[in-house]
Design a protein around this nucleic acid. Sequence first.
DNA 1: ATGCATGAGTA
DNA 2: ACTCATGCATA
Length: 306
Amino acid sequence: MSEDQPFAMPAALQEPKFSSLHASAEAMRRVCLPAPQLQGNIFGSFDESLLARAEALAAVDIAPHPDAAFPAMSGVPCAAAALPLPAALPHPLPHPALDGGDLLEHLSSPLAVGGLPEPLPPPLPPAAPLALPVGPPGGPPPPAAPEAGSDPRELEAFAERFKQRRVRLGVTQADVGAALAALQLPGVGALSQSTICRFESLTLSHNNMAALRPVLQAWLDGAEAAHRDRAAGPDLLPGAERKRKRTSIAAPEKRSLEAFFALQPRPSAEKIAAIAEKLDLKKNVVRVWFCNQRQKQKRMKYSAVH
DNA sequence: ATGCATGAGTA
DNA sequence: ACTCATGCATA
């Protein structure tokens, strides 16, 4: 009820400079996206098959295996889970009717039998999900981006330097976020600890990193100057407003979702609804989960070759 | 440090 | 309804 945000538009990122960047990125993605999905279900039992398989997968996972001596990636909560190897087909399928049914059987079989010690069979290279600058024969494609704000290398280096110096100043991530508002840069309000943390750990999109860099650079500059001058310190008062609740998805359900995601990163609304019912989750929860998964795949870290 | 969520902008 | 930037709540 009392959810008022002092910064409705906290974006220096929304300025024309970045807007064009966003536009370019989205345009490219659109071009690269061949088709949302294929609707080649011949019998109509596609959904049920998929759902059943994923459920089976999840069930197997929680079922006690007498021979299960390899917990494998059970100790990896999400780092590995965030990289489910999307285009990992066991073998090439010459059929244009690539349906989830088939894919699923191929994929879920090895997994579902899952007691098998190796959930990660082939040394799959980190293939780009979607983004090939190469154009069709006969038509030279336009240059991807005229000016990248800064290349990944530079951003990565800065992020590390930033963290190092921030710590040296004895300032927390939350402090930095709050201090940003004091800078009074045009369109730049405060940021949360989360965002500062993600910047430092490169768990943001490239564009996001590039947009935040000058802002954080500015803060660092001022902070170090202030440190030299021993100027008066700012003030931070811990708020006392906490309410929102976070729904947590249970492990089995999460495994099912991950299984679905590996097959269909962008399920239709109907499919989402079906999944939600099968897993006994709210449709919106499922939808948001898929959105967040997609975002994770687009982060700088791990998303590309180093 | 990260999971689930919101909201603006866009298609 | 999606993407993208961002945040509250929490492990």
